[in-house]
Amino acid sequence: MSEGLAIHWRLIPQRYNLVGTECLKCGEKFFPPRQLCPNCRRVGEIREVKFSGEGEIYSYTVIHTPPEGFEFMKPYAMGVIKLIEGPFLTAQLVDCKPEDLEIGKRVELVFRKIIADGSSGIIRYGYKFKLKD
């Protein structure tokens, strides 16, 4: 679904720069960011933290039937990435052939266009990952 401008603007630090959060009380790091630590809840102490963008493939798939807006990319690879700092996230895996993908392979963040709202709408950018040589 296409998002309003404010939703996208609000998420720019996270989507552009991989800014998440961490809880100073228990030490757990969160990406996507959480404003309430699920371990400590009310007594948690949340602050922002920038992630390195390095991680490994935890699982992956190649999507052949894309949703609206992603048709021109198909087929494209999607992975669950385990960041070296601990958290997991979902992102496209780019600049690689499907047969190169493997669980455990090291990956790094790249900044790319995610989707455009039609030909004259706003273009949304965000993180994707590529295999690390």
């Binding site: 996507p32 999507i63 990319m73 999607m78 996230l89 979902t90 995610i114 965000g126």
Partner: peptide, 12 residues
């Protein structure tokens, strides 16, 4: 915000 936005589908 963190799955659909990336082009994730339910089958995926």
């Amino acid at each position: 915000e963190w799955e659909a936005f990336k082009g994730v589908t339910f089958p995926s």
